[in-house]
């Protein structure tokens, strides 16, 4: 029987370089796709179906999401990894429920934001992307939104890192800002891949802008700017409430929470 060392080596940076590269490539792929879509082909969609833009939108965003997952997932500690399925089920369950109400909200990111607050931006981004990919097992139409979901997780993690979850009233503000960015990034997907949105509430808003003569992308972007910030503000607030309800022993298990004092006022300064 082989004699394994009983201890782990001190955390080193050597093996992480490749992972970092994958993360950067993933982010770059998402950013480049978005810029290309917005700058190069804004009017393409309604003159014919514009399958080239669809392919680009799908390919670029999905590739980015997959690179992010491959880069982040193996570096996550198991304690964070096991939370991801929990987050996914919360996302999917609440998202499905909200989808049936007809309100112009999604509520499909509570789990993602929860992970981001506890484990940081990288874990949040991976959770968001994975959430879309695994949800697509039951609903393939969410697959193209993987990049947007990753962005939400990343931004929620950044908000937590810079202290926006220390006070309850700051969380919805961070959510509002995240919603603006996420909405603008996701709108091209709705426009180029689906030619619209599938919810009754969101559909009505898009129709109103179209009736005023907007292009499809513009109408969907405006709709996203109405729905997403509100939606994310609520989602961030709910996530904050849930995190505040957690016992200290549960939250302090996460190094990210301890290191950046994510939930200040909830606990005495922990000796590291």
């Amino acid at each position: 029987m082989s004699q394994q060392s009983l201890t782990l080596p001190a955390p080193g940076a050597a093996a992480d370089k490749k992972r970092r590269l994958l993360e950067l490539l993933g982010a770059a792929s998402i950013a480049a796709t978005f810029i290309f879509l917005v700058l190069a082909q804004p009017s393409d969609i309604t003159n014919g179906v514009g399958s080239a833009s669809t392919l680009l939108a799908l390919g670029g965003f999905l590739l980015g999401a997959i690179l992010l997952i491959l880069g982040v997932l193996p570096t996550l500690p198991t304690s964070t990894l096991v939370l991801i399925p929990v987050a996914l089920v919360l996302n999917i369950a609440l998202g499905q429920i909200m989808g049936t109400t007809g309100l112009p909200f999604y509520f499909d990111a509570i789990g993602t934001v929860l992970i981001a607050v506890l484990a940081g931006p990288a874990a949040g981004a991976a959770t968001g992307a994975l959430s879309s990919i695994i949800w697509s097992f039951f609903n393939p139409t969410v697959l193209p939104f993987a990049a947007g979901a990753a962005l939400i997780g990343f931004l929620a993690g950044m908000a937590a890192r810079y202290g926006l979850f220390r006070r309850f009233y700051l969380a919805p503000v961070a959510g509002f800002a995240t919603g603006i960015i996420a909405g603008v990034v996701s709108a091209p997907i709705a426009a180029f891949v689906f030619g619209g949105t599938s919810g009754a509430g969101t559909g009505a808003i898009v129709s109103a802008f179209r009736a005023m003569g907007d292009t499809l992308l513009a109408a969907i972007t405006k709709q996203a700017l109405i729905s997403d910030p509100m939606d994310k503000a609520i989602v961030f607030a709910i996530a904050a409430l849930l995190v505040y309800a957690l016992p200290r022993r549960a939250t302090f298990r996460f190094p990210f929470v301890r290191r950046f004092n994510v939930l200040a006022g909830k606990a005495p300064v922990a000796a590291s």
Binding site: Q4, S5, L6, T7, L8, A10, S272
Partner: peptide, 15 residues
């Protein structure tokens, strides 16, 4: 402290 040995859970659980 931070310099404490870090137990490898996989190797430790064989003992």
């Amino acid at each position: 402290t931070e310099d404490d040995p870090r137990i490898s859970p996989a190797a430790w659980s064989r003992q």
